[in-house]
């Protein structure tokens, strides 16, 4: 009798555990569920002036000329780990230079991208993996440079938001939504699944250009992470 009772309790416990595991798996799967490219309804001829204004707003989302930015960057992995560093980004038209340092000032990583050639001049652990350098440069390009694409299409998403859609030669698509409070950029890989989203907020005017005080980049997928960037200084050089 006692053995039967133990079996019943064991079976009940097992069911609860399985249900819990199932819920966990469900939650994990939904978190990993890719977000697909939304449909776009092109602005028609009646909306010509609106399309022109939208294109201009999208262009103004990116600074022009030579700039230097310093940000504090909080890096957070999906598992909760992460660190805070200071990032320096220099854009000079031909080259993109970036450096990461500790709050205490020690340079952990420094690299330059010129004519599609990446040169890493300093990389201390844990930033010494080649994939880290490539990923960092890709993120920096996505944040600061206009998408490498022809003139974007303009249109409306299902919810009515106006969007500039850039399509690169490699199939990557970038949707840019701009308003007075900032902008949101969604980047889709050639499979049309969202790989990155970048939210820029609290824009300020520096040298007559629009510079966001806050940036948050969210990378999706198995190695998901978030970069929360707060502007320390912006200089047109």
């Amino acid at each position: 009798m006692q053995r039967l009772g133990e079996k019943t309790i064991l079976r009940g416990t097992l069911k609860s555990v399985l249900a819990f595991v199932f819920l966990l798996l469900l939650a994990a799967c939904s978190a990993l569920q890719p977000v697909h490219l939304p449909d776009l309804t092109a602005l028609d001829a009646v909306d010509d002036s609106q399309a022109g204004q939208l294109l201009q707003r999208c262009r103004n989302n990116f600074v022009t000329g030579n700039w230097q930015f310093v940000h504090s960057i909080a890096f957070k992995r999906a598992d909760g780990g992460g660190a805070t560093v200071i990032g320096v980004t220099v854009l000079d038209g031909q080259k993109l230079h970036c450096a990461l340092m500790t709050v205490e000032g020690l340079v952990l990583f420094e690299a330059e991208l010129a004519q599609e050639k990446l040169t890493v001049s300093r990389a201390l652990p844990p930033f010494d993996k080649p994939e880290f350098a490539r990923g960092l440069i890709r993120d920096v390009q996505a944040i600061f440079l206009p998408p490498a694409a022809e003139e974007p299409k303009t249109g409306r998403l299902v919810g009515g938001e106006l969007v500039c859609r850039y399509q690169a030669d490699n199939g990557q698509i970038t949707d840019l939504l701009v308003d007075d409070d900032g902008s949101r950029m969604n980047i889709y890989d050639p499979d049309l699944n969202r790989s990155r989203s970048i939210v820029a907020g609290s824009p300020i005017s520096v040298a007559a250009e629009r510079v966001p005080e806050t940036l948050e980049l969210t990378a999706s997928g198995l190695s998901a992470y978030t970069l929360t960037m707060t502007l320390i200084s912006a200089d047109k050089i």
Binding site: Q68, V70, I86, V88, V90, H97, A99, M101, V103, E104, G105, V107, I232, S233, D235, I237
Partner: peptide
């Protein structure tokens, strides 16, 4: 006061 100087910086980062 901490000054961080790097060749790429137009002015040092002050902490």
């Amino acid at each position: 006061t901490q000054e961080k100087h790097l060749p790429i910086l137009v002015r040092p980062i002050i902490s």
